[in-house]
Every structure is written in structure tokens, then in C-alpha cells.
């Protein structure tokens, strides 16, 4: 494993003794050159997991091991600097992820200048190389982010992250703010870069079909805990956990005949508030197969097929 979360936990305090259980005892690893897809609805804690994993949030509990070295519990500026050439991230919102007062050149060069010092002139060639590598014209160095479309900004974000040649790239919903035709562009670009650079990626998204396309393995989170993890096709085509089944069956396919034939799945209820959770299966409230002991005992992940784990008492 390149990076591994062991019982990683992140609670946010709301005061008055209330705590949001954003990530609760999640153990998940990413191997070298592997793309792990992480799906879940909003409020499932998938983004918090990604950010806690790489130190953008302080850990409430558990540990993260990167190449056999434990990462700090709370990050100081020096800790980020130490891991800058190993782990980088691209963000969901292509608008807030680029500083509107900086030119494209300054944005992309930032990592190099912080790491190696020097000035814009000395890294110019490298910046142009990366700008063109992500499919943007090298002439656009002195443009500002607001002049680019969402997809183009996302490319700039990718160039900024990759110019320091990290081993692991966290992609936090990198395509959910983009148009369909542009999503494919960005996904293909990420796929190409992954191949040529040998990157490992954590690909966080809510679009299951896109995640299946991108990932080697797929993990599903619900209300802060991991409910299923396995090879992408296995999770997508033979989901084991009732929640994964619900998630996949509620995703409409671009195929009218298939949609007309679909039996309407019972999709009941909504994701509850993750405040002060009690023991028991998190999904019990919405599960069509719920049994009394589901509400009392928290299910553990267990192997259901080769490399395929799910957390459900009924399996």
C-alpha cells in the first residue's frame, strides 16, 4: 500500500456537546499506481475522508501511514512542505481553487517556487510544458483564471498539482461542476497522466458510472463509514450492500429502453444527520431489508468475494 488509513476518524464539534461524525473509523488503502474511486452521497464524509487523509484536517483518531511512515496527527506548515512532492490534490470547485489575483503562470509555478525557490523566469519552460501537457496553450501564461472556462481551470489545477511530480493525487469531485462533454475531457486527461506518470489516485465523486470508468477499485461510504469496497466492476455490477444496490439502481442510465424496463426500486428516506450517531448499522433507517439487530450492532466489513468487502449483517 502506498497510503493507508487505519481507523481514521474525523469529528467536527458543533458545541453544546454535539459532534458531527464525518468520518468514523474508516480503514482504506491505496496501492501504488492504483485508482481508488470513493463514492457516496453528500454528507457521506467522502471529501472529509480525503482531506483528513492528507492532513488538511486534523485527525480525531486513527492513523495514516504513507510508505510505512506514519503521517502527523496535526499538520504544521513544515509537514505539508515535506509531503508536497508526494501528495497533491485537485479540488471540486474550479472557481475557488485558483487564486483570482494570480496569473496562470504564477499559479502553476507556485509549487516549484515554494519548494525550490527561484523566480518565474527560471521555471517558465517547465510551466509552459505542463500547461501544454494538460491541453492548454502555452501563450496563456499571463492570463487570469476568470478568463477560462470551468474545464480549462480544472486543467490548470491539475498542472499545479502535478508540476511537483507527486505520487498520489487526491481528486475531490474534480468533474462534478463540469459539463458532460468537458467531464470526459478531464477524465481522459487524468487517465492519460495516470498512465504516463504512474500516479496513484483517490478519485472522489458521486457519479457512479464515471467512477467505475476511472477506478480500479471502488469504495462506497455512507454517513461517515465505509459500507463496501472492492474491484470497481464487481461493486458496480454485483453490489452486495443494500445501500450500494440502492445507489446504483437509482442512477438513471442514458438508455431509454433500459429505463422503461426498469422496475422502480424502492428508494426510501434520506441520509440522516451525522450528529451524535448511535451504534448500529448507519443504513438501518432506510434499508429495505432491515432486521432488529441491525439497529443495535454496528456491522463490520467482511469479505464477500475476492477482494470485495461489505459491511452488512445480512451477508
Amino acid at each position: 500500500m502506498l497510503i493507508e488509513a487505519r481507523k481514521l476518524r474525523k469529528y467536527f464539534s458543533l458545541g453544546h456537546g454535539k459532534q458531527v461524525h464525518a468520518v468514523d473509523d474508516v480503514s482504506l488503502g491505496i496501492a501504488e499506481h492504483e485508482v481508488l474511486g470513493l463514492v457516496g452521497e453528500s454528507g457521506s464524509g467522502k471529501t472529509t475522508f480525503g482531506k483528513t487523509l492528507i492532513g488538511l484536517y486534523d485527525k480525531t483518531g486513527g492513523q495514516v501511514v504513507y510508505r510505512d511512515r506514519e503521517l502527523p496527527q496535526r499538520y504544521q506548515a513544515q509537514d505539508y512542505k515535506r509531503q508536497a512532492s508526494e501528495i497533491q490534490m485537485i479540488f471540486q470547485d474550479p472557481y475557488s481553487s485558483l487564486n483570482p489575483r494570480m496569473t496562470i503562470q504564477e499559479i502553476i509555478a507556485e509549487g516549484l517556487l515554494i519548494r525550490d525557490g527561484g523566480n518565474l523566469g527560471s521555471v517558465r519552460d517547465k510551466v509552459v510544458y505542463w500547461l501544454e501537457r494538460v491541453g492548454l496553450h502555452g501563450d496563456h501564461l499571463s492570463r487570469y483564471p476568470h478568463e477560462f472556462s470551468g474545464g480549462q481551470r480544472q486543467r490548470v489545477g491539475i498542472a499545479r498539482a502535478l508540476i511537483v511530480e507527486p505520487k498520489l493525487l487526491i481528486c475531490d469531485e474534480p468533474i462534478s461542476a463540469l459539463d458532460v462533454s468537458v467531464q470526459a475531457q478531464v477524465v481522459k486527461l487524468l487517465g492519460e497522466l495516470k498512465q504516463s506518470l504512474g500516479l496513484a489516485m483517490l478519485f472522489i465523486a458521486h457519479d457512479l458510472s464515471m467512477v467505475r470508468y476511472v477506478s480500479d477499485r471502488m469504495a462506497v461510504m455512507y454517513l461517515g463509514s465505509l459500507v463496501e469496497v472492492g474491484p470497481a466492476d464487481a461493486v458496480y455490477f454485483s453490489p452486495q450492500h443494500p445501500y450500494t444496490k440502492m445507489l446504483i439502481s437509482s442512477n438513471p442510465e442514458p438508455d431509454p429502453v433500459h429505463e422503461r424496463q426498469r422496475k422502480d426500486v424502492i428508494v426510501s428516506g434520506e441520509i440522516p444527520s451525522p450528529v451524535n450517531l448511535q451504534p448500529g448499522c448507519r443504513f438501518a433507517g432506510r434499508c429495505p431489508l432491515v432486521e432488529p439487530h441491525c439497529r443495535l450492532e454496528t456491522p463490520m466489513l467482511r469479505t464477500v468475494a475476492a477482494n470485495h468487502l461489505a459491511a452488512c449483517h445480512l451477508l
Partner: peptide
């Protein structure tokens, strides 16, 4: 904002 988090990850003081 995401751009500050990005700069943090790049090792900014």
C-alpha cells in the same frame, strides 16, 4: 478557499 488549501499542500508558510 480551495486555493489556500492547495497552496498549503504545496508547502506554503
Amino acid at each position: 478557499e480551495a486555493f489556500v488549501q492547495a497552496a498549503r499542500l504545496l508547502g506554503a508558510q
